[in-house]
């Protein structure tokens, strides 16, 4: 009897000694108040994108102010063209088109209203909703962008998801991204170099 008690006691002590893992502690759940959410949307001048089958996503307005095309291109009128220049782009001398071979201005812009975009699939895309236009050909990228595998998220991981538009990262007239120099490598000391 005594022996049994002794074994039990030792067992209990051992058990108490082994269960060292402390209980996890939690802070309050992280909430994004409605006000913060609205503030973020306002800050980025974001517009909602709703496509069935994807979580809610907002697209931020472009950093640069888009030009008002209607200032020169009057609605219903043919814009002036100088055929000696490539694509008749005399007023847009700084635009070089490097996109899918022989595209020209009106492959994407509507002749009557260049603020509007034309696409193979008819969608009423504007410069602000360029993702619809880009997405009509680049379907995989569009799906990835909606899902979250492509594109740049501007907000934290929690709460409202605001992302950049396609034209926020890619130059629409030459969408391939160029090369850059990497950030300089901090100096390596001899003792660190020895370890490798």
């Amino acid at each position: 009897m005594l022996k049994n008690n002794f074994i039990l006691l030792v067992g209990a002590l051992l058990f108490a000694g082994c269960s060292k893992e402390p209980d996890p502690t939690y802070s309050e759940p992280l909430e994004q108040e409605d006000y913060d959410r609205q503030q973020l949307i306002d800050d980025h001048r974001a517009q909602p994108v709703t496509v069935e089958g994807y979580a809610d996503v907002y697209v931020a307005a472009l950093d640069t102010e888009t030009k008002n095309c209607a200032r020169c291109h009057k609605s219903g009128e043919q814009p002036y063209r100088d055929d000696s220049l490539p694509y008749g782009q005399d007023a847009h001398w700084d635009v070089a088109i490097h996109h899918a071979g022989d595209m020209e201005c009106f492959s994407c812009h509507k002749k009557e209203d260049p603020n509007q975009l034309v696409s193979v699939v008819d969608k009423n895309a504007t410069l602000e909703t360029a993702y619809l236009h880009c997405g009509s050909c680049h379907k995989d990228q569009f799906a990835s962008w909606l899902g979250g595998a492509h594109g740049k998220r501007l907000t934290g991981w929690k709460g409202v998801r605001i992302v950049k538009n396609c034209t926020g990262c890619h130059n629409p007239h030459a969408p391939a991204r160029g090369t850059t120099l990497p950030v300089a490598q901090p100096t390596i000391t001899p003792e660190r170099a020895k370890r490798h």
Binding site: A55, D56, S144, G147, G148, A149, W157
Partner: peptide, 10 residues
């Protein structure tokens, strides 16, 4: 609904 879950699934 997170991006990472979408990536893992798709």
């Amino acid at each position: 609904d997170s991006e990472i879950r979408w990536i893992l699934e798709n």
